[in-house]
Design a protein around this nucleic acid. Structure first.
Length: 281
DNA sequence: ATTAGACCCTGATCGC
DNA sequence: TGCGATCAGGGTCTAA
């Protein structure tokens, strides 16, 4: 489901229900998601206070006052839904229990935060906060798109060594953390680059131009509350609306917004790439 | 080290 | 209405 903008949207949606609040009780309904859940997860969460909610790449990190952080990945179909709270005029509820509600956090004050994930490609783990950078899921991640370590020089150097298509290279989380299939397609369209082009053979100036484009696309998507395809929801159940701004993703045969040429869909690395054969070279 | 492909799992959709 | 094939925003692991 979620790429960086969706994860950031979910994180923001969880702040009010979780930050500064104690987890009164944690309900863990199965022993594993993608991987086994950590030993004693329910006991280690119960009674802990959430001090801060952060995001690294497509992971959400909930720092606890126990010295541990809860690491959450939503995979393809994971959701975090808040219920049992009133936000302004709206009372959020989530008729429980739903199929695939794997972990439920009962927060002090009555809010519930439910991790629901039909496909179970998602993950949860506990890590000592002061050693989180060494966690096996986080250690190999590339720079954050909005961080200082991600810049023109870095990207040009990193892509120079890549013979794979630019599409696949930008999806590699070791090279750059946070992009997924949707936003890579949209970025390459805005940059006018054919997704099949070998990364190493694209002129440095065109690679450099990707840096601000990547930030622009991600910023706009975050601003829109992410993209809601199929059943993705923000934490408050609202839908993001960036999908209405897609220029190529999921628009096979529809006219290119720039030139009218039908958008093409091809498979790369087992995923669909959408592009305009006229505008992207 | 890089790259392609299989694989993980459930659910929605489409053509017949 | 049913059935199989295909596809889906994630990532890991293996083999070459």
């Amino acid at each position: 489901m979620p790429e960086l903008p969706e994860v950031e949207t979910v994180r923001r949606g969880l702040v009010q229900a979780m930050e500064g609040r104690r987890i009164e009780r944690a309900e863990v309904n199965r022993p594993d998601l993608r991987w086994p859940l950590p030993e004693g997860l329910a006991e280690r969460l119960g009674g802990a206070r959430v001090t801060l909610l952060r995001r690294r790449s497509k992971y959400i990190l909930a720092d606890l006052d126990t010295g541990e952080s809860l690491l959450i990945h939503l995979g393809m179909s994971g959701r975090m839904l808040v219920s049992g709270v009133t936000l302004g005029r709206f009372h959020l509820d989530h008729p429980v229990p739903q199929k695939h509600d794997h972990v439920v956090l009962h927060m002090e004050g009555g809010a519930r935060v439910t991790f629901n994930d039909a496909r179970r490609f998602g993950a949860m783990d506990l890590v000592r906060t002061d050693r989180e950078a060494a966690h096996w899921l986080l250690a190999g991640l590339g720079p954050e798109p909005f961080g200082n370590a991600f810049n023109e020089g870095y990207l040009v150097a990193a892509l120079k060594a890549r013979k794979s298509p630019i599409k696949t290279a930008l999806l590699d989380q070791h090279l750059l953390a946070g992009l997924g299939n949707i936003y890579v397609c949209e970025v390459l369209f805005r940059a006018g680059i054919d997704p099949r082009r070998a990364a190493s053979r694209i002129a440095a100036a065109r690679i450099a131009a990707l840096v601000p484009i990547i930030r622009e696309v991600l910023s706009e998507a975050i601003e829109a509350g992410g993209s809601s395809l199929r059943d993705h929801r923000q934490a408050d159940g609202e839908l993001g609306y960036f999908q209405h701004a897609f220029r190529v993703y999921d628009r096979e045969d529809a006219p290119c917004p720039a030139c009218g040429t039908p958008i093409r869909r091809i498979a790369q690395g087992g995923r669909s790439s959408y592009f305009c054969p006229q505008c992207q070279r």
